[in-house]
Design a protein around this nucleic acid. Sequence first.
RNA 1: CGGGGCGUAGCGCAGCCCGGUAGCGCGCCUGCUUUGGGAGCAGGAUGCCGUAGGUUCAAAUCCUACCGCCCCGACCA
Length: 624
Amino acid sequence: MPGEKGQECFSNEAKSSARFGRRSSFRFCWKRSRRWNMITAGTRICRKGGFMRYSEMFLPTGREVPSDAELISHQLMIRAGMMRKLTSGVYSYLPLGYLVIRKFEQIVREEMNRAGAQELFMPMVQPAELWQESGRWVHYGKELLRFRDRHDRECCLGPTHEEVITDLVRNDIKTYRQLPRNLYQIQTKFRDEIRPRFGVMRCREFGMKDAYSFDMDEAGAETSYRKMFDAYQRIFSRCGLRFRPVEADSGSIGGNFSHEFMVMADSGEDAVCYCGGCNYAANLEKAEIARPATKQKKSKNSPMEEVHTPNVRTIDEVCDFLSVSPEDVVKTLIFSADEAAVAILIRGDHEVNEAKVRNFLGCASLELADEEMIRKATGSSRGFAGAVGIRCRILADYSLMEMNDCVMGANREDYHFRHVKPGRDFTIADYADLRIIREFDTCPRCGGEIQFARGIEVGHVFKLGTKYSRAMKAVYLDRNGKEQVMVMGCYGIGIGRTVAAAIEQNHDADGIVWPLPLAPYAVIITPVNVNETGLSDAAEALYRNLSEAGIETILDDRDERAGVKFKDADLIGIPYRVTVGPKRLADGKMEIKNRRTGETTILPVSEVAPFLSARIRESGGTDG
RNA sequence: CGGGGCGUAGCGCAGCCCGGUAGCGCGCCUGCUUUGGGAGCAGGAUGCCGUAGGUUCAAAUCCUACCGCCCCGACCA
């Protein structure tokens, strides 16, 4: 038990404390809990912080870059002994990695609790019935890992917990007096990803903080959403990450509004756009494009003309053949929207954003039409579709509003029209924002210039509305005794992914450079040679001092050469290294090196602990 | 699921074409020397050569099937 007197941990017989490592790491996980405070009440030391002797730690570092790791964070997490792969998309965290995970989880807990959410813990195995009730047993797809138990009952591993939480709440929340509620857990999820990759960044089994809010009405839900949004800002700020909340499409979880929290990194899987002028930011799928204010440009009003374009199908071929630029061509794409043909008109140099089309049409399925549907709608094969005379609904992107002398397919094999004028030669029923935003487009909010960047999605906040509460009858009685449907929100943070993202943003040629709040230890003490008793004793004494000061410290007491220890210290990214060597110690001094800046400070032994305490406090490393 | 690549010592790899003693570097163990940026010397251990069949006097090597891993794509929170 960790409840024994703290002093025992630091017997003067420094080298005999083999048990200390084990006990102290247990302490660490309780460090800010009420129980721990009770346990340690009255003891002078070990109040907080983790301590470790390197020689006793299971910390296998490696020099070689693992051959199957592509991302720098993945490589470093393996090399730094943070994790190991069990099988595709499934990883074990080793002690060092798990320390960091818990550091982050603790920050998440503190901010969730501060925002008024309550922690609970739900099962990973879930019965099919709940998913059938929400409709997702059918719709979720193959990422939902399904299986049968010994009684042949259908089950799944939870990829998310809307069903379970909604079931919990509907059974025990009956009245408006019990609302609002926000419940969260930090728990393992399983999503049977089609292609796991990038280590813990996109894996199948992963830790996630998921929170769910239940409110009486839209206004309440809005408040809950805002609270979570703010909490997320604090969480990622506290970790010292460069991030950006971006507007996002709500995807298949359902609902009507969401923000993604993106940690900015060139290696990120997601493209985001943002405005240099205002704070507008969105993922590419969601990014709006303003309706153009200008009318059609003036032109000489030439009559439409059919031209023979043998085997000229793509935009490039059309441009070459007719000596026009893509901005003068209209692409006509035939989609099958819930089995019905729809023609999407878009400027030749633009790309269709299928999410926007889907949202505009409100259809369940949308895919490019097959050859047969194209022929039916246009009377021609792929590559010659155009709006003139087409036999299906026409939807045009806003960009068409400015075009008036364009080239488009003639719905006839090997023919295109030129000098086509929308409005004169055919009619457009609906204009909408249907294209994918491009870099240097105009910001839909302020008219500034849109820029692109890449990011890693570490958090996502959704307004779910009543999608689940309605399907699963999560209702309450209002003041008037009338039954109302609860309004929900859900809020996720990828735990391991955030840690990996932090490495993507914080590393150099020598290894990881932890931001202090995530660092497994704040300080590493490196006696240059443990066989010189003077050095060893001085290092041990400092280890004791730092521990008493509550500074999380690892003592590199291995009988290794200095170079090896320095390399490992850099690799695992400990923010401060105290080198205990003969040159400085002869003058009663030690050297402190800042991992990030490389800055070294030489101080008398007695000033080392106060100096580190002050630095760490400044950086928000110990208290949060 | 389609395309490509790879499975040989803990890690990184050679050997395979052209069948015949299983190798290199790092790591690991022992000893001596060394000790402020991944030490030197000497000695040593470690392999179902992914699995199963087949061809052959003989298979890491050739053939077939399967399994696993990685990359690209399709797909998707």
